[in-house]
Amino acid sequence: MADLSHSRSASAGSAANGSRRLFHNLFVRNFSAKLAATPMIMTVLIVFIGCTAWTIFYSFTNSRSLPSGELVGFDQYTRLFSNRRWNASVLNIMTYGVTSLCFTMVVGFLLAVFMDQKIRFESAFRTVFLYPFALSFIVTGLVWQWIMNPAFGLQAAVQSWGFTSFTFDWLKNRNMVVYALVIAGLWQGTGFVMVLLLAGLRGIDEEIWKAARVDGIPTWKTYIFVVLPMMRGVIVTTLVIVGSGIVRLYDLVVAMTQGGPGISSEVPAKYVYNYMFGAGNLGQGLAASSVMLLTVFIILIPWMLIEFRPKSHS
């Protein structure tokens, strides 16, 4: 602090001195640490920031199969938001996202709590719940496509047992197909959420539980008011993992519904893929992916502002 105010009040003569110090601080100090971090810094600069900038720039061009530098303003975006398939995709991913996020977190947490009750055969249960996560979304999608197929799957089976009025045709139902995706997604991902949250639960000091029991706090209140707040870090990690899985949802849709019936289970990532590679319209695909990126930022920035705001000690 004293240093800073000194250089502020110093005359122009010490400006050169200041820039030398800046150089020193930037490059010479902790040189080996900075050298070691260079590959990662370059990766971030080139792969993440560089490619993002490239994507955004070319979303303002009329690039088709190959990138072109001809700028067309917001044309790609105008077309994007007047496209019925894109708008349906956005709506679908929102429905899927909110439902899937709520259910994976709640069900995953309840399963973790269940596993934390010192039950017998815990590792067997854990394996069973986690097993679907070892399968790709493609396999998951194909399996559930058969289970939910009204002609062969659950509906046909239950009807053949005599319950002829039973219907479960979500895959063919334009209004319910997104929830069919949610079910398959839950089946695949909940075990993983459970394992993450279970690790968080196990990290809670046992004496906290004892203290709560002595205080006479009911178990469910201990979970909600004491344990959950203590698991904040694990929960944020889980939310980020689940959230990124939702945003990039693609393979499950391709395997399970191909976006159908009609366009009623289309998702943004599939739109990006189809227009970039299938339709050879790079500009349109990049505009769509830029919008996806923007959405992620809109969700993340308020959270980051809260999380990383300078902490004040009162």
Binding site: E207, I208, A211, A212, P229, M230
Partner: peptide, 13 residues
């Protein structure tokens, strides 16, 4: 009874 623990076991939040 009231109990005091080695790790304090305070509710951190």
């Amino acid at each position: 009874i009231g109990m005091v623990f080695q790790s304090y076991a305070l509710y951190p939040q």
